[in-house]
Amino acid sequence: MWMRGLMLLALVCLTACHRGMDPVTFHDDGYPPKLGDWHVVEARDGTLQLNNGVVPYELNTPLFTDYAHKLRTIWMPKGVSAKYNPTETFDFPVGTIISKTFFYPLPKGEARNATDVARTYDTSRDFAGQGLNLNNVHLVETRLLVRRKEGWVAIPYVWNADQTEAILARTGDVQALTLVSDNGQRENFNYVVPDQSQCVSCHAHDWTTRALQPIGPKARHLNRDYHYPDGDENELTYLTQVGYLTGAPAPTDAPRNANWMDQKAPLDARARAYLDINCGHCHNPKGAANTTGLTLDINTPEDRHIGFCKPPTAAGQGTGDHMFDIVPGHPDDSILPYRLSSTEPGTMMPEIGRSTVHQEGVALIKAWIAAQPGDCVVLH
């Protein structure tokens, strides 16, 4: 009990900068016009601060969104917890608020345009304590998933030019930005904030009911360490100790996806984790892409279901005139990397959520396909 008490105290003290912030406010209906109306995260004193009880988390392998960095958080009202599930999204109680703030580090150096953002995996300059250092980052949007009595509701907010508040954007938004690499290479692109109705295309776990579900809060994605104010701790363990999760086993007994960037992890594990988070929420037996016969979540066996020598369900632009989803040993003959490499509507996959090509992700999937044995036989 004493350990639980210490963890609850740590949760209360999760950030030292939230003094003066009103308590988190759960709105059980409607669409508040400002992100600040929820008091989950707020821009204060040069920092995007987390309120009391707002717990940050990361994923082993995150979804790609135009090289944006993301600050993810969970908040729950007192006295309730999520129920652990080994394979699916945890069963979160009514009142839960999950936030995801999309942002970019600013390019290093003084000479830059107002729309320049860094294309980097370096997160060392992002954080100030458990918040974001607004001197070093550019905030774009914060999306809320709110668990109301009738189910999950997605509510998007876009940050203003002054970076002081995020405003409700139910119809979405488009921002012209320029990715700047460390070597000075520049890429202009349109960052697209999906409108509220588009959220269902990724977050509908069951395409029959089209009820929204969170994607990231699953055991295999959260089974990793996070650097909390009181030290490093496994996220499943921490959520359990602060009372936000019940029924979780020891981390060694829970599933765990690989980090797609971990060169020490097996290539197969890295590629499957990448496909799971970027494609598996649609390409599964109940998802939006269930009619394609291509299932890409981590639980799919590596046979024809994951695309080996599987002909596409429809020909045309999306296939690039390739005959199979995956041709073992031949990534350039495979539909999967062809679609991941495209930004053309009707060809690109995923269909929404990006305007740029994830070059490193495509390289990973090509390397994985190139390493696969076997061949595809064409029957005439």
Rank of each mutant, 00 (worst) to 15 (best):
G20M: 07
Y244L: 01
P331Q: 02
L168G: 06
G361N: 06
P107Y: 13
V40R: 12
E150W: 07
N278T: 06
Y31V: 05
A315Y: 11
Y244S: 05
N52F: 06
E58T: 10
D332Y: 06
N183G: 05
H358D: 15
A111T: 15
N136K: 07
N190G: 08
T65W: 01
P217C: 02
H281C: 11
L179P: 01
A314H: 09
D182V: 05
V377G: 12
W75T: 04
P251G: 04
L71D: 02
V24Y: 09
L132Q: 02
G129C: 12
F189W: 04
V327D: 05
N234L: 02
D262Q: 00
T319I: 02
A367K: 15
M3W: 07
G46L: 02
N183A: 10
K100N: 13
V357M: 04
T291G: 09
D303A: 10
Y244R: 08
G316C: 09
R112K: 15
R186Q: 02
C17Q: 14
D321M: 10
K218F: 03
E165Q: 11
T292G: 09
L236R: 00
S124C: 07
L50W: 06
Q163V: 07
V327Y: 06
A211S: 11
S342L: 07
R304S: 11
E235R: 01
G374S: 13
D22V: 05
W260M: 12
V55I: 12
P156V: 03
G5T: 09
K100L: 09
A68D: 01
S355I: 04
L239D: 01
V174T: 10
M3N: 14
R72D: 01
W38Q: 05
P62M: 06
T65P: 08
G129P: 03
D173R: 13
M348S: 12
G361L: 06
Q175R: 15
E110N: 15
R119E: 14
P56N: 03
K34D: 11
K70D: 07
P217T: 05
T246W: 09
T47M: 11
P345I: 01
M1I: 15
D321H: 11
Q175V: 10
T47V: 15
T15W: 06
L379F: 14
P312R: 10
T96F: 06
M21L: 12
C376T: 01
G243H: 10
H322D: 06
P285D: 06
I298A: 13
P33I: 01
A176G: 06
E141A: 11
Q185T: 07
W207L: 09
Y31P: 04
E150Y: 03
E58K: 12
H205L: 13
G129M: 12
L59Y: 01
I97T: 03
